[in-house]
Simulated assay, not measured.
Amino acid sequence: MPDDRRTVLADTAIGVLAEAGIRGLTHRAVDRAAGMPPGTTSAYYRTRQALLTALVRRLVALDQAELQGIGSRTPVPQSPEELVAGIAAFVRRRLTGEGRRRSLARYACAIESVHHPELQEILVPRDNAGRQVVHDFLTAQGLVDADARTITLLTCVDGLVFDRLVNGGSVSDGEIRGLVAAALR
């Protein structure tokens, strides 16, 4: 657990949001979940909007660190099956444990950002090493529109994750294989 109290509170807020939804995200709920005295969260984040903004910034930082790590330790796949295996592993992480918690919080924040443009600015998709691996694979396959196909493929993967979070179940390698095949057509 991080030592910095602001980070601890933001991490705790991610968990509260994932468990209780946007209406359950309150200063008091974060205090309770963090095991801190009442008023602690409010002392660091005076308004609900300040708390939500801190949560979103932390969520993006955690996601970026994960995606950068994937790219730094993952060579460009040499075959579609290698890409399928990499994406499937990523999806499994997004649907279980800590990844599930962050995914639930991320989607709640995305919906909330419709009404709070300042959150949209923070949530804008960023370049990262994980995305670059997919792009480099598609480029190596001779696709001239690898940029657009990378975005389409990853958006479809994101949609599968969202669907399984809402409706239950897992994502099969066959589903990922179909998306990769479509990106290669």
Rank of each mutant, 00 (worst) to 15 (best):
D4M: 05
D4R: 11
T7V: 14
V8P: 01
V8H: 05
L9R: 04
I14W: 04
G24E: 09
G24W: 10
T26M: 07
R28K: 15
D31A: 12
A33Q: 14
A33P: 06
G35R: 08
T41L: 08
Y44Q: 12
T47C: 08
R48I: 11
R48K: 15
L51Q: 09
L52Y: 03
V56C: 13
V56N: 03
V56K: 04
R58Q: 12
V60A: 02
V60Y: 00
A61W: 02
Q64K: 04
A65E: 12
E66N: 02
E66R: 12
Q68V: 03
I70D: 00
S72Q: 11
S72P: 00
T74C: 04
P77H: 01
Q78I: 01
S79L: 00
E82L: 03
L83T: 01
I87D: 00
I87Q: 01
F90R: 13
F90D: 13
V91M: 07
G99P: 07
G99C: 08
R100N: 07
R101A: 10
A108N: 05
C109N: 08
C109M: 15
A110Y: 14
I111P: 00
I111W: 11
I111D: 13
H115T: 06
H116D: 15
P117H: 07
E121I: 05
L123T: 02
R126D: 08
N128L: 00
N128G: 08
G130Y: 12
V134E: 03
F137H: 03
F137S: 03
F137Y: 15
L138Y: 04
T139R: 14
T139L: 12
T139E: 11
T139P: 01
L143R: 08
D145R: 11
A146N: 10
D147Q: 10
D147S: 07
R149K: 13
T150L: 06
T152Q: 13
T152S: 14
T152K: 12
T155N: 14
C156V: 12
C156R: 14
V161C: 01
L165V: 02
L165I: 08
V166K: 01
V166G: 00
G168L: 06
V171F: 03
E175L: 09
R177P: 02
V180Q: 02
R185D: 12
